[in-house]
Design a protein around this nucleic acid. Structure first.
Lengths: 190, 190
DNA sequence: GTTCCCATGTAACCCGTTACATGATTTT
DNA sequence: AAAATCATGTAACGGGTTACATGGGAAC
């Protein structure tokens, strides 16, 4: 059988922290690993079906009054075994970074400079909206066991965020101080 | 009709730098935008078919003696128009960062600490192998028009790389200075 | 003699995303 | 009265990756 994708183990791993409904899992993933491993809502549902078929998790229906029933999932001993076997493997997937802004920036010589400045400014704004995100993650992980490692992942997220933000600011400063229109006071040396 | 994915415009954009065979495109993409927008070899072939169907690029077969024929692609005026229209749009996709190591690290409390150290050490090695990669990109872009913006993308790649490397080193130092085996001089307060 | 480079492509898979759909309760 | 929250799920698409396949010439 094919090895499971990383996402499966991510789901399995999150469930080791505590039994959860799928809905809770989505929220928890969002607040913990999403910044380096996003899992779509609909994916969680699919993954859990697969994991249950494999006997790695066990779901139990829980009735609620006034709210729809939920299904609480917990990891089975076989699931734990599978997770630990995966963790013990030395290999890991290479990191992937994908940036639509950078694609546009790469070809920005075809863009009016004003548009470019707007785009980078919008990019910075979006980054700034996420400035507290990582700190919130660190705070939310304070009590978990293994929190030190979890904090390390959030720390990298924070660092990268800061790096990108600093780069965007730098670029913006360059753009704003450059001869915007046809008014060029400084002439280039050549 | 659905808007084209970013990858299409990336291919289109790369072709504005100069007409290229698909093979060359793969290599050029690898040496220019791959660190923030990877395009698989087989994808290039598919994209170019689509772009040709749309009339955005035009391919011409070139016979070679001793080597297989190649097909040189160039952007059409309609393609340029489409590219510029895309560049003029204000929106951009959110960045995505995906890290398999971080997933494992997140659950590293279930890992023997020795394994973890090995993993992070391997991660650092892999990073170090790529240390010159970005500088090479910057060097390779020296003469292109719009090189300033291209260099900006490479610069961010470099900065992120440095950030991650520093983080990995820091983490490794922590791991190596921590009580590795069962020898715990310090006992936990509880 | 084997491996690498040039250059082409196809097939298949599945992962990930987006959109759609439902419905009661709580909050604004 | 409207919007958000809780909680469930399905359908469909397509993008991205990996693997397979060919084959001559150059290099080691």
């Amino acid at each position: 059988m094919n090895p499971l994708p990383t996402t499966s183990y991510a789901v399995l791993g999150l469930l080791t922290i505590g039994p959860m409904s799928r809905y809770d899992l989505v929220a928890f993933a969002e607040a913990s690993i999403a910044h380096f491993w996003t899992i779509a809502k609909s994916q969680i549902y699919g993954e859990l079906s697969r994991l249950e078929d494999l006997g790695y998790v066990k779901g139990t229906d829980v009735k609620q009054s006034g709210l729809p029933d939920k299904r609480i999932y917990e990891v089975t001993p076989e699931g734990l075994e599978a997770l630990d076997a995966w963790l013990a493997e030395p290999g890991f997937e290479p990191d992937r970074f994908r940036s639509g802004v950078l694609v546009k920036l790469f070809f920005a010589s075809r863009m009016p400079e004003e548009r470019l400045t707007e785009m980078i400014a919008a990019y910075r704004s979006r980054l700034e909206e996420h400035t507290d995100y990582h700190q919130r993650i660190v705070d939310g992980l304070e009590q978990s066991p293994g929190a030190q490692y979890m904090r390390a992942t959030a720390l990298l997220g924070l660092r990268i965020h800061e790096t990108v933000l600093a780069w965007a600011n730098e670029l913006l400063r360059t753009l704003e101080s450059s001869p915007t229109k046809t008014s060029s006071k400084k002439r280039r040396s050549r």
